[in-house]
Design a protein around this nucleic acid. Structure first.
Length: 925
DNA sequence: CTGCTAGCATA
DNA sequence: GTATGCTAGCAGA
């Protein structure tokens, strides 16, 4: 029989507070109640065997009993000042310990416990309710028992009868007669336990006692008569609900009440602050055991789950309290603003969001700021709305000046959605945002990188709530209006919600992370976001004139190619139009289309591969190819980059997307600085325009064969590992192995083959792909691959294992525990499935490489800052970091930069980073 | 004006 | 054969 263990967190909070001697954290925060409750939960966890469990707390605010009876609990003194902060922090700590935590607005903890107990009872489960509250005795039956963990007292039916002298089903009647002084529930004057038991023994039920009120003599008889009108109400107040709607909190019912793995990382942090030393040690030991990240992000290899393991566990259901109502306000008066500042003084963490005039952060102007304090509680400060939209509005600079200390404070923690954006916005006004402690977008990216991370989607997925969309306020497309034109009322609803939801979602997502994920989130992605902010802000200096010259040259070359094409075709046409080109080549010129690749829409493709095959036999294709290549250079790079120079800084500021690539890589856009040409001579010239200011140089360092090294590490293949350890030329070595000759006899052709195989493997390539890229037949390609796998059995084995793992669990992992989901891995479509298998093979290598360089970026920036260097990180291109370095620091950076990159992780292969210096990016590479 | 395809730049 | 972002052309509003 399954057992459900329910803990009345709120009742214990009070009892522990009054029972425990004073205790406080190093910073003076009282901790006795928190310590008492957590200690009790630790004992319960081991002492009471159970299958499901939950710890229930009272939600803030009034509940249905207050509606029944305005004076309910009216005589209770307010919560002692020493208890309040403890009450606030306790639920989070309990959740971090792995307990499902429930808080339901509108009812009390008792009612939630009553409901869950009732449901479990109906399902034939055994229920143990751990509480210090005697009222709970009304729940006891054959399967439901109470345990007071503080006094070690157990109450079953017999126990209730022994203790109270009435049966469990009479407890409500019993308590109604006695009343409850603490909760201000009126009973019968002068009627205590003895009298109540006597009456109930005689008449059986409250109803019957009331019916015979006239029979009872003496002063108590009179009192009973006097109490008759209010006794039904008391009965109602004392009755614990067993029918609370928990659909929203527990959409999957009892099944979600599994104990989860404690978040040791976060617990350790809290125990540290709270001064719980022995528990801190314990948490650290757990982390050291690989149950959290140890000293080294890459040290712990998780044991692969059993092959039978099913896809990722479903996200833990929503257990955070949903606020009973929303409190969103606009701040437009000095009084309200002063109150807001006072609130910020008291707050430790807030949700933060800005509204602006532009998606381009560096050029965006502030329209308003929203701040959330608690779920459902947020304010919006309109600052840059048009007068029509906001008749009353505080002065932008005045407000910013007074908010600045809070925004720049590391003490006040900020949580938001893509805060890197807001960080830029504030920086535009001379404010450096500090204390960034959470970002819902990044948290979501860590948990499920393959899904969307927009706030709207997150609210839907994690809170089950719809959002007000930006489009519903501002419209879209050409007719879109500026947020500055949105009326305050609607702007407040929207903006306050964004801050509120970001705060709520981030908290929710954190509880869904395992220790490794929390580690990656807090110690990798959040710090990386700061590095990206710095790099974006730094920008890259571009030599406009150089690009203009190149554009000019390209322009005249393009004109010539165009003329040639027209002559060959016998007519002018648009060389950039695949459709027109198709007509010319396969229509007018009558080139046979047999065996040529088709486009998705049915026509004959005119892509590079097709034109290459036609080039030996016809003159036009090679002209087109040259034209395309140059046109791309001109339109995408030499013409475009100068347009992207920011007039204020004189530099180009890209935006790095941190949550788009499913493998963990960054992406760069507006402009994309990660696809600047290098392969062709003409293309590479573009890099000459990436320069450093007078007195500085460009320094670039890139990881050598990073993904191949990671493949060696992941596969553990002896031969491959050895090649790297010996510092060999791995492609040459591979050729030697595959062709069965000595490395010194490998021809350049053979080395090229080997290099292609090595790269192909990283992409999950099969014989077909290899044949195509080497221009050999399928059979020879297969024999190459077979020979390769025969010489590198570890690699063959790894490929196989990875595919199986992906199929078994639906995701694969990087070395540091980043999860990479493969939605297509179970597809019935063979092509799609094969694609997912290739992605599965590639993802751990690409993803681990990306984790590595992210770690290096954080370390490099930390070094630059701590040593007070003037060198600037300006670009990241997947395996390369580019810096702008003053000449005085050149020697230092050249030595230290590759060293930091190589030390980003300790793996079974040495990491190698190669550094270059130059006047421009081409020279430095 | 918007959304799509083809093609191509990078690691 | 993995992972991205950008441009031009073009079709349908």
């Amino acid at each position: 029989m399954n057992t459900l263990l329910l803990v009345d967190g709120s009742s214990y909070l009070y009892r522990a507070f009054y029972a425990m001697t004073h205790l406080s954290a190093p910073d003076g925060t009282p901790t006795n109640a928190v310590y008492g409750v957590l200690n009790m939960l630790r004992r319960l966890r081991t002492d009471v065997p159970h299958d499901y469990c939950a710890c229930v707390f009272d939600a803030k605010g009034s509940n249905f009993r207050h509606e029944l009876f305005a004076d309910y609990k009216a005589t209770r003194p307010p919560m002692p000042d020493d208890l309040r902060p403890q009450a606030d922090m306790l639920p989070e700590l309990v959740a971090l310990m792995g307990w499902p935590v429930l808080k339901v607005a509108g009812v009390e903890a008792d009612d939630v416990i009553g409901t869950l107990a009732h449901q479990a009872d109906e399902a034939g489960m055994k229920v143990i309710v751990s509480t210090g509250d005697k009222d709970m005795a009304q729940l006891v039956n054959e399967r439901i028992t109470l345990v007071n963990t503080m006094s070690n007292e157990t109450l079953d039916i017999e126990g209730v009868v022994n203790k109270f002298g009435v049966r469990p089903e009479q407890i409500i009647d019993y308590l109604a007669l006695i009343g409850d002084k603490v909760d201000n529930v009126p009973g019968v004057e002068k009627c205590g336990p003895k009298t109540a038991v006597k009456w109930l023994a005689e008449y059986g039920s409250l109803q019957n006692v009331m019916a015979h009120a006239a029979d009872i003599k003496g002063k108590v008889g009179e009192n009973l008569q006097a109490a008759l009108p209010h006794l039904p109400l008391s009965y109602q107040l004392i009755t614990i609900k067993t029918d609370v709607d928990l659909q929203q909190e527990l959409p999957e019912g009892m099944q979600s009440l599994h104990r989860r793995t404690p978040k040791w990382e976060a617990l350790a942090e809290h125990f540290q602050t709270l001064g719980f030393k022995s528990w801190l040690k314990e948490a650290e030991a757990q982390i050291g055991n690989g149950n959290g990240r140890g000293g080294d992000l890459f040290a712990a290899e998780t044991a692969p789950p059993p092959a039978a393991a099913v896809a990722a566990p479903p996200p833990v259901p929503e257990i955070a309290p949903a606020p009973d109502k929303l409190d969103y306000r606009a701040i437009t008066t000095e009084t309200a603003f002063a109150e807001l500042l006072a609130k910020l003084d008291a707050a430790t963490a807030v949700g933060l969001d800005t509204e602006t005039t532009s998606l381009d952060a560096i050029n965006a102007a502030l329209v308003g700021i929203s701040i959330a304090f608690a779920p459902g509680e947020a304010v919006y400060i309109p600052l840059g709305h048009t007068p029509t939209a906001a008749p009353e509005q505080l002065d932008l600079h005045e407000v910013l000046g007074r908010l600045k200390p809070y925004l720049e404070s590391g003490r006040l923690k900020k949580i938001g959605q893509n805060l890197k954006y807001d960080e830029h916005v504030f920086y535009n006004y001379g404010i450096k945002l500090n204390g960034i402690a959470g970002d819902a977008m990044l948290a979501s990216y860590i948990i499920e990188s393959h899904l969307g991370h927009g706030l709207d989607e997150l609210a839907e997925r994690w809170l089950g709530l719809p959002t007000i969309t930006y489009e519903s306020l501002c419209g879209k497309g050409a007719k879109q209006i500026s947020f500055a034109d949105v009326a305050i009322e609607q702007a407040t609803e929207y903006a306050a919600q964004d801050a509120d939801f970001a705060l709520r979602i981030e908290g929710r997502l954190k509880t869904a992370m395992d220790a490794k994920q929390l580690e990656m989130y807090q110690n990798l992605e959040l710090p990386v976001a700061e590095v990206l902010f710095v790099m974006e802000r730094n920008g890259v200096l571009i030599d406009k004139d150089e690009l203009a010259r190149q554009s000019h040259t390209l322009g005249s070359e393009l004109v010539q190619l165009e003329q040639q094409a027209y002559e060959i075709a016998g007519q002018p046409f648009n060389l950039n139009s695949p459709k027109q080109l198709q007509e010319i080549l396969f229509g007018k010129m009558g080139i046979p289309t047999k065996g040529l690749k088709k486009t998705a829409s049915g026509g004959v493709s005119t892509n590079e591969a097709v034109l290459e095959t036609l080039a030996p036999d016809y003159p036009l294709p090679s002209v087109i190819l040259q034209n395309r290549s140059l046109a791309k250079l001109k339109s995408t790079y030499t013409d475009k980059l100068p347009e992207m120079i920011n007039p204020h800084s004189g530099r180009v500021h890209t935006t790095y997307a941190q949550a788009v690539a499913i493998t963990g890589r960054l992406a760069s856009n507006n402009p994309n600085l990660q696809n600047i040409p290098i392969r062709t001579e003409a293309g590479r010239k573009v890099r000459r325009a990436f320069i450093a200011p007078e007195g500085s140089k460009i320094v670039s360092a890139d990881y050598s064969q990073i993904e191949l090294r990671i493949m060696a590490h992941l596969s553990g293949d002896k031969t491959l590992l050895q090649a790297f350890k010996n510092g060999e030329d791995v492609h040459r070595r591979t050729a030697a192995e595959v062709f069965g000759i000595a490395p010194e006899n490998v021809s350049s052709e053979q080395r090229r083959y080997a290099k292609t195989i090595n790269f192909g493997l990283i992409y999950g390539m099969g014989q077909y792909g290899l044949a195509k890229s080497l221009g050999i037949d399928n059979l020879s390609a297969k024999s190459f691959i077979d020979r390769y796998f025969a010489r590198y059995p570890g690699v063959a084995d790894y490929m196989q294992r990875t595919k199986e793992l992906a199929a078994a669990q639906g995701y694969v992992e990087t070395v540091s525990g980043r999860r990479l989901y493969l939605p297509g891995i179970h597809s019935k479509n063979g092509n799609e499935r094969a694609g997912a298998e290739r992605a599965a093979i590639n993802a751990p290598m690409q993803g681990t490489a990306s984790d590595l360089i992210k770690r290096a970026m954080v370390d490099v920036l930390a070094w630059l800052v701590s040593d007070g260097l003037k060198s600037k990180l300006i670009m990241q291109v997947h395996d390369e970091l580019v810096l702008e370095v003053p000449e005085a620091e050149l020697g230092l950076v050249q030595a230290k930069l590759p060293e930091i990159m190589q030390k980003a992780a300790v793996m079974d292969v040495p990491l190698l980073a190669e550094v270059g210096v130059g006047e421009n990016w081409e020279e430095a590479h």
